[in-house]
């Protein structure tokens, strides 16, 4: 019974790799778009603020699977992986923009004033002064987002991305359901290890980037 796991381990690990590739691709997209949305929300004129709010509301208000279907079936001919990156990435952008918005607003307004007084334009001040500080503040809440998005890579199986969960399902199918609990159990364990590893790395990163003289957050769940 356990032989099946040993035999199929490489196959499952490849699924882990696919999941990680997918995560890296869409969380990066979410990061870039999320940062832009957050800056639009905090510093933009009314039109930009409104636009950012609309995008944010839409991608936060529609279930992930529905987004995946919209991108996969809506953009005909697009590979499942790309559809997953777009659907999950833009959804993540909406969530990440909330994190970044909070982080930017937590920075004292005097930082911006001082930068402007030195002759920096608004965008330069945002880039050189605000963003570096906001990103440090964002790492904590961002690690939650990271964990939940890592788990949500499994949703991509609904549009045919052959990632970890999909592979587990294949194994269960061709062994006629004899190992259901075992295979899904191993699959669950793999997600668990990935999430914990990611969180530990992010926590270390946060500590390394911490500004000397400031309080640090304790390592949490």
């Amino acid at each position: 019974m356990y032989k099946v796991i040993l035999e199929e381990l490489p196959y499952l690990l490849q699924g882990v790799l696919v999941a990680l590739e997918l995560l890296l691709a869409f969380i990066s997209l979410g990061f870039l778009v999320g940062a832009v949305l957050a800056v639009m929300r905090v510093y933009g004129n009314r039109l930009l603020v409104l636009l950012a709010i609309l995008i944010e509301r839409f991608f936060r208000g529609v279930p992930a699977v529905v987004l995946l279907f919209l991108f996969f079936y809506g953009l005909s001919g697009v590979p499942p992986f790309v559809a997953a990156v777009l659907g999950l990435g833009l959804r993540s952008a909406a969530y990440q923009s909330q994190i970044f918005k909070g982080a930017i607003q937590a920075i004292e307004s005097g930082q911006m004033t001082a930068a402007r007084a030195l002759g920096m334009g608004k965008l330069k001040a945002i880039r050189c002064i605000i963003i570096p500080q906001a990103l440090r503040l964002a790492i904590g809440p961002w690690s939650n987002e990271f964990a939940s998005e890592l788990k949500d890579t499994s949703l991509a199986y609904t549009i045919g991305v052959i990632e970890l969960l999909r592979r587990a399902k294949y194994i269960v199918s061709y062994t006629y359901g004899n190992n259901t609990l075992l295979v899904y159990g191993v699959c669950a364990l793999m997600y668990l290890v990935l999430v914990r590893t990611g969180n530990v790395i992010l926590y270390r990163l946060e500590r390394r980037l911490a500004i000397p003289g400031f309080e640090r957050r304790e390592e949490g769940g």
């Binding site: 005097g110 930082q111 004033t113 007084a117 002759g119 570096p132 500004i211």
Partner: peptide, 20 residues
């Protein structure tokens, strides 16, 4: 305005040093 501000130093009551 940015070029002109660059020529005018400003020292704030609460310093406003860049904390990072």
């Amino acid at each position: 305005i940015n070029q002109l501000r660059a020529k005018i130093g400003f020292v704030f009551q609460d310093f406003n040093l860049f904390s990072h």
